[in-house]
Amino acid sequence: MSIPPPGFAPLPDPPYYAVIFASLRGAPDDGYGAMAAEMAALAARQPGYLGVESARDGTGFGLTVSYWADETALIAWKAVAKHQLAQRLGKDRWYLHYALRVAKVERQYEGPEGR
C-alpha cells in the first residue's frame, strides 16, 4: 500500500466496507465542529477502522466516507454510545437532510494512471 496524497485514506486491498454519509447542514455550528472532530478521533480507535475521507462545500452539502475492515466492525461503530448521541444531535440540530449508504468495496484503483 503506497502513501496516498493528503485527504485520501490509506486503504488496504479490497474487500472492505464503505459507509457513505451525505448531509446538508442547515444550522449554525452550535458544537458541530467539535463533535465531528471527536467522532473522527473515536472512530479511529475502533477495531476494524481503516480510514475516512470527508469534504463539505459552501452550500453546506458534505460527504464523509468511513472505511471498515468488515461488516462486524461497522455495526459495532454504529452501536457506540457517543456515536449514537452524535447521530441524535445531527438529526435534531444540524442536518436539513442526510442519506447513509453502506457498500462493500470489491475493487479499487488510483490515478492519474488508473488501472
Rank of each mutant, 00 (worst) to 15 (best):
T72E: 14
R88K: 15
P10C: 12
G90K: 04
A103N: 03
E106L: 12
P15V: 07
R107F: 12
M39C: 10
G62N: 09
L11Q: 08
M1A: 11
G90P: 06
R93K: 15
G90N: 05
E110D: 12
R25Y: 06
R45G: 14
S2P: 14
Q46H: 06
W68Y: 06
A43Y: 05
Q108I: 04
S2H: 12
V102K: 08
A73R: 10
V80W: 08
F61R: 12
Q87K: 15
R115I: 05
H83I: 02
K82C: 00
A34T: 10
P112E: 11
L89Y: 08
G114R: 13
E106F: 09
P47G: 04
Y49M: 04
G60C: 08
Y16C: 10
A76Q: 13
K104F: 01
A81W: 07
I3T: 14
L89P: 00
L100P: 00
K82N: 05
A40T: 07
L50K: 13
H83M: 03
S23C: 11
G33E: 14
A18K: 00
G33P: 02
L74E: 03
W77L: 03
A27D: 11
H83Y: 04
P112N: 08
A79H: 10
A79Y: 04
P112D: 09
D29E: 10
R115Y: 11
E110K: 11
A34S: 12
S2I: 02
I3C: 08
K91Y: 02
Y67W: 07
L63M: 15
L89I: 00
A73D: 08
P47N: 11
E38W: 06
P6L: 02
A22E: 13
A44V: 10
A73W: 09
G26Q: 13
T64W: 07
G60K: 11
G58Q: 08
F8C: 10
R93W: 03
W77C: 02
L85Q: 14
L89S: 01
A40D: 15
T72R: 15
Q84G: 07
A69Y: 00
L100T: 14
E113F: 07
S54I: 00
A44P: 12
T72H: 12
L50I: 01
G111Q: 07
P10Y: 00
A41Y: 04
G90D: 04
G114V: 01
K91R: 15
P4A: 06
